[in-house]
Structure formats: C-alpha cells, structure tokens
Amino acid sequence: MRCEYCGTNNTAQEKFCSACGSPLREMKQVSEQVGNPGGALSGIQCPHCGKLHPSTIWNCPETGGDLSGNTDIQMAGRSSSLSAKLILEDGNEIPLNTDGQTIGRDDFDRIVSAQDLPFISRRHLLISFEDDTYHIEDPGSKNGTSINGLEISGNGKYELKDGDQIVLGKVIKLEYRSK
C-alpha cells in the first residue's frame, strides 16, 4: 500500500509505513473546510507540467508556472510528470523548478537512510534555469558532488544533460531527467 504521507510503496502485509511510520489505512474523504473534495487525488491539473498539484499552491512546484485562476478538478489518478527532475536509485524523485532552488539535506530526509543523510550538506546543490536549461552548482559542500565521475564542488555551474549521473557526498546517486 502506498503511504499517503511520504509516497513510499509498502508491501500488503505492512500496517505502518516502513519509511515514515504512518499507519497505512484508508484516509477519510476530505472535509469541506479544506475545500478540496476527493482528497489527495484531486487538485489542480497543472497546465505546465501535467501533474496533479494540491489546490493550495499558486505556482507549479515543477516549472514555477502560474496556477492562480485554475479551478480544482477531480482526477482518476496521477498523470506522469512532464518536467525535469532528479531521480534516486529507488525511483524517488526530486522535481526541479525554474525559479532556482537549493537542494540539501532536508530534501532527502526520509528518502535516503539516516546513515547517508549526514553526507549531504544543508545547502548541497544550487539549481538554476538559464537559457532553457538547468544548471547545477555545488557551492562547496563538505563531501562534494560529482557528475559522470567528475568532481564539480567549488568549480562553478555545470549545464545538465539528460541522463547525467550525479553523486552527492560520494553516497547518494541521482540521475537527471529533462522530462
């Protein structure tokens, strides 16, 4: 069963999520108070990335596109992402947005093991979006970053290409997907 809190897929025998410890059970239908009928599978279908986002946000977390003025809709399921992301070995994804973002330890909390977490700095990577491409920079993290085996820490911006293999702190492997 898929954990509604952290998205981890658990085996049918589990009663609590192995990653976050939440009970795995049917969630209630959402109350009118939150104004989001249908619960997690409802929200805004994003005109920018095609994904389903909660109705409470005003910018697409993937592309940064404006979502104000979009009305909530019901969906049968989540459509697949159309936008850039970093993918971990276990399939977890970190969406990239065009506003520029910092990727650090918090982003990997509950995604990687607690033993690996200390190897990621609080501000490990800076992502920027220039000339229609994502750039990545390690401003000098403690344990470094390599792309396709090349150390980039402290060496300025690197232009990401589809399929680039990124290793953070020598322990966390990520792959860049442009869509």
Binding site: P23, M27, S31, P61
Partner: peptide, 23 residues
C-alpha cells in the same frame, strides 16, 4: 520562497486533516 517546501507542507496538511487517527 521555497516552493517545494510549501507544496510538501500543503500535501502533508491535507493528509493530516484526512487521517482518522489524528482526529
């Protein structure tokens, strides 16, 4: 200004409202 954090927060808040254990 961290839009990913806000997105995660809104998802978690909505899940919590729907979590019968927390009611």
């Amino acid at each position: 200004g961290d839009s990913t954090a806000l997105w995660k927060a809104s998802q978690q808040a909505e899940t919590m409202v729907r979590d019968p254990g927390l009611s």
